[in-house]
């Protein structure tokens, strides 16, 4: 378990993180999503013990780690693995040498290293590339090599810092699949720091949305996708399907457009015809989609509602009372 308590970090007047509290349960895949400049990189540096917070505390399994120094700090850093957007492999070493590095620095003997490295390369599907130069690998292969290197020391935690951001969609899903497979084999807590909502919905159990150095919203991925509260969370959720928001705004400047989010049993209900029958409204369907995240259904509808103001208010209240999130798109 990783716990952050009121963690703040300031860079020369710029408040990168202000009073962030998070609990990352053991054995889960925890997503931290935010736009660039939201404070994600700072968060990585802090939980990666590369920098100290100005205020607040960080715990790995009840052990305070943000104030460690010297040898304690080194030992603690060896408990987690890290993978990066730009892989950060050593050009001076081949694939084998890269994976062997974290074992070399803790003084493991050669026989153990060889055994472990070959096992890891098999796990990530790079057995035939052991003695290739890392610069000759494709992006996906580089990230696999980096993953093998991160797992070499049997870490309790794996931190993925925008690990799929430099990869194409297919390679991204193969890397995510690999993370899932590994997590099924070994007990590992994974922290995914990303700006890609599809990564979160594909692999994460929990997610925190960060913006402006603060945690805006936290919860299970199901909750976030089904019932996003903040503006930024809604933006991330709607990024899962193509957004026509701008088109609507330009096309229908004088009309009133709502976006509806709903999940599970509501998906199967006749929302639109009820609006027409029970609220006496004219309804124009602009877009609609139902998607599955972890075996649950999530629906999104964009509707133009036409009718008197009091009827519109009545309709919105009625929708909300059914557990539908309603967002007015234009004013």
């Amino acid at each position: 378990m990783i716990t952050l308590k009121n963690v703040s970090k300031n860079y020369g007047g710029l408040q990168a993180l202000s009073s962030v509290s998070l609990t990352i349960p053991s054995g889960t895949v925890y997503g931290i999503i935010g736009r660039s400049g939201a404070g994600k990189s700072t968060l990585v540096k802090l939980i990666g013990l590369l920098e100290n917070p100005d205020a607040g505390e960080i715990y790995f399994d009840d052990r305070r780690v943000d104030n460690l120094r010297g040898a304690d700090l080194l030992v603690c850093r060896r408990q987690f693995g890290m993978i990066f957007q730009h892989f950060n492999l050593f050009s001076s070493r081949d694939v084998f040498g890269n994976v062997a590095y974290p074992l070399e620095i803790v003084g493991k003997d050669k026989v153990y290293i060889k055994d472990r490295v070959l096992g890891l390369l098999e796990l990530v599907g790079l057995s035939d590339k052991a003695h290739s130069s890392v610069n000759k690998l494709s992006g996906g292969q580089k990230q696999r090599a980096a993953m093998a290197r991160a797992l070499a020391v049997c870490p309790k935690f794996l931190f993925c810092d925008e690990a799929t951001s430099a990869l194409d969609p297919q390679t991204t899903s193969s890397i995510l699949q690999l993370i899932k497979n590994i997590r099924n084999k070994v007990n590992l807590t994974v922290v995914m720091i990303t700006h890609q909502m599809n990564v979160v919905s594909d692999i994460c159990d929990y997610v925190s949305v960060v913006d402006g150095g603060k945690v805006i919203e936290s919860g299970t991925v199901k909750e976030l996708v089904g019932f996003p509260h903040s503006k930024i969370a809604k933006d991330f959720v709607s990024s899962l399907i193509p957004s026509y928001e701008k088109t609507f705004k330009n096309l229908l400047q004088n009309s009133i457009i709502f976006r509806l989010y709903f999940s599970n049993d509501i998906v199967t209900q006749p929302i639109v015809s009820r609006l027409i029958k029970e609220c006496q409204l004219n309804v124009n369907i602009l877009s609609g989609a139902v998607r599955t995240v972890k075996d649950q259904f999530f629906g999104e509808l964009v509707l133009e509602l036409i009718g008197p103001a009091q009827d519109l208010k009545f309709a919105v209240d009625k929708l909300k009372s059914q557990g539908i999130v309603v967002e007015k798109l234009n004013v």
Partner: peptide
């Protein structure tokens, strides 16, 4: 040597 690479080595617990 890129500072990112040095940070990666640091994060692995290198002296």
């Amino acid at each position: 040597t890129s500072s990112e690479l040095i940070q990666a080595a640091k994060a692995m617990g290198s002296t």
